[in-house]
Computed example of a mutant assay.
Amino acid sequence: MSDVAQAKIKSKIFIRGKMIVLTGLHIGGNSVGMSIGGADKVVVRNPLDNVPYVPGSSLRGKMRSLMERLRGHEDDPNNGGKGGFSWDERKKEAIAGKKGETQLGQLFGITAAHEEKGKLTATRLIVRDAMMTKETVEKLQNAPNTDMPMTEVKTEVFIDRITSGANPRQIERIPAGAEFTIEFILTLLQEDEKETFLDLIQEGLLLLEADALGGSGGRGYGQVKFLIEQIEEKTAQNYFNGDKATPITHKMTQLFSSELSKEAV
């Protein structure tokens, strides 16, 4: 494998679409300055317009975590993680995606904490922050039953197993039915196979749909659905010439194409 730092960019692939929230979503924000009577745990918001959004780091991090747990130790970068699940007891983490020659290492990159012999692997995948669609913002601003701007507050009660005392807490959630725009940018290097990395992104999205995004997933929060509406590629020559990106096909557009009811918002 050639040194990634020296490899030339072959193309960039843009994957765009929507993420639909199926059950209340909580991705925590800064609670400093919340007024009396507000939620104990608030969602992250854009400070300029106070609209909730989903950080790209949350999407990317959950995809990587699930893919590492699925694959375990990738002894062979081409075996799809069939070597079995491996766990680093000292670091309390899955042993996957920690080497630059593995598929996950190439897709997500290798940080200094996991570098091998002084070599780092730059990420090939950029995940943009997912912004709430204009239609969802307008619906939630006019919704009569929201508890906070564009969100709901869910009250939960923690029962002390010794004293049986009840300790209520209030958690702010983005309501089911909310939609967000998503964009993934895949950078392909000269040695890269396009289908390999597109299949990896597809794998991560499928895993995330079958799991949960954000906090309290085990209690029903954070079920999401992806709709992939457009995949385009812009080659190095396109950038040299100032040309537009060209649409390309991948099975993602069929797998993530179901139209869902939007009456929940």
Score class of each variant (00 low, 15 high):
E152F: 15
G81W: 06
V21M: 12
R128L: 04
T249L: 14
P144K: 13
E263K: 05
G222Y: 01
E74K: 03
G218I: 08
E193R: 12
Q103R: 12
E233F: 12
D199L: 04
V127Q: 01
A96K: 02
N241S: 07
V54R: 02
S258Q: 13
E116R: 15
I15S: 05
G118W: 02
I13N: 10
N145Y: 13
T146V: 14
S31W: 02
L107E: 01
M34D: 05
K99S: 11
R69W: 13
I126K: 07
M63G: 11
H26P: 00
M67A: 07
V43M: 00
A96H: 03
A39K: 04
T146Y: 04
D76K: 10
F197Q: 07
E263H: 05
A7S: 15
W87T: 08
T196K: 11
S11W: 04
G177C: 09
A5M: 15
A143S: 08
L205T: 08
E115L: 07
L22S: 10
V265M: 15
M1H: 13
A176I: 12
Q190T: 13
G61Y: 00
M34N: 14
V4H: 09
L48S: 07
I110N: 08
G204W: 09
I20M: 10
G222D: 01
E203A: 10
G222P: 09
R161F: 10
N238H: 15
K154Q: 14
R219M: 03
I126N: 05
L107A: 02
R60G: 01
E232F: 03
M131Y: 11
K8Q: 13
K12N: 14
M34T: 15
R71Y: 09
I228D: 04
A178E: 01
L104G: 03
R219A: 01
S57I: 00
T187N: 09
K154P: 01
K134G: 05
V32F: 02
E89C: 00
I174D: 05
S2V: 13
G28D: 00
E135C: 04
D243E: 14
R64P: 03
K262H: 13
K244E: 14
I20H: 14
T123M: 10
G100Q: 04
